[in-house]
Computed example of a mutant assay.
Amino acid sequence: MGKQAFEASLAEGRHRDLARMAGDWSGSFRLWFTPDEPACEAPQRGRIRSVLGGRFLLHEYESRFNDEPIEGIALYGFHLDENAWQTAWVESFGTGTQLMFCAGSGDDPRLNVLGSYGDGQGGPPWGWRTRLEQPDDDTLVITMFNITPAGEEAKAVETRYRRIG
């Protein structure tokens, strides 16, 4: 990545899009185990900050599943040389001890990435897709989809944030 390409991305490209998401957020977290109805709905607070000169965003958040606290960290980025969105995600609830890496095409204007995880029993991997959408400066929607080994996709998590302040 050349310095000029990165500066252009900060000014008018994907890194500018990432920078729009920086801030303090509050909203709701919903979790599905089956497609019919959410297993949980709880408040969620998050802080998204630009790190390493605007190269990445660091998203730290807190919520709950029933009485169990949830803490998570996600790193969001755009790899200019590969024209690819990239993320790394860890959480006290959903990822166990796995660091989940995800990537997606930069041709999609939204951060839309795909990763995978094991079933813990040696079976085929399951897919996990994460999509971030920012319809306006004060709204951020993070939707995560579980994908069976057969390719069936269902909404698993939805976080709807409103900017604080």
Rank of each mutant, 00 (worst) to 15 (best):
G2Q: 00
G2N: 00
Q4N: 09
Q4P: 02
A5W: 01
F6E: 12
A8G: 08
A8F: 03
S9T: 03
S9R: 04
A11F: 01
E12P: 02
E12A: 14
E12S: 14
G13T: 01
H15L: 05
R16L: 13
R16V: 03
D17P: 02
L18I: 12
L18M: 13
M21F: 02
G23K: 00
D24M: 03
D24K: 08
W25L: 10
F29W: 12
L31S: 09
W32C: 10
W32S: 10
W32Y: 14
F33W: 11
E37C: 04
A39P: 09
E41T: 15
E41K: 01
P43V: 02
Q44C: 14
R45M: 07
G46A: 15
R47N: 12
S50N: 07
L52T: 13
R55Y: 00
R55F: 00
R55K: 06
L57G: 15
H59Q: 09
Y61C: 08
Y61A: 12
E62H: 11
S63C: 12
S63I: 02
S63E: 04
S63P: 06
E68L: 03
P69I: 08
P69E: 14
P69L: 01
G72K: 06
I73V: 15
A74E: 15
L75K: 05
Y76S: 02
G77K: 01
H79F: 00
L80R: 03
D81H: 01
E82H: 10
N83W: 00
W85I: 10
A88G: 07
A88N: 12
S92N: 04
F93Q: 11
F93T: 07
T95K: 02
L99N: 14
M100I: 15
M100N: 03
A103V: 10
G104K: 09
G106I: 00
D107L: 06
D107H: 11
D108P: 13
P109H: 02
N112F: 06
L114G: 04
L114A: 11
S116Q: 13
S116R: 11
Y117I: 06
G120L: 10
G120D: 06
G120Y: 08
G122S: 03
G123Q: 09
P125Q: 04
W126S: 05
R129W: 02
T130H: 11
R131V: 15
E133K: 06
D136C: 12
D137Q: 04
D137E: 15
D138K: 07
T139R: 13
T139P: 11
T139L: 04
T143M: 06
T143R: 14
T143W: 11
M144K: 03
M144C: 13
A150S: 13
A150N: 08
G151P: 09
A154R: 07
A156N: 01
R160Y: 01
R162L: 08
R163C: 01
G165Y: 00
G165P: 00
G165E: 04
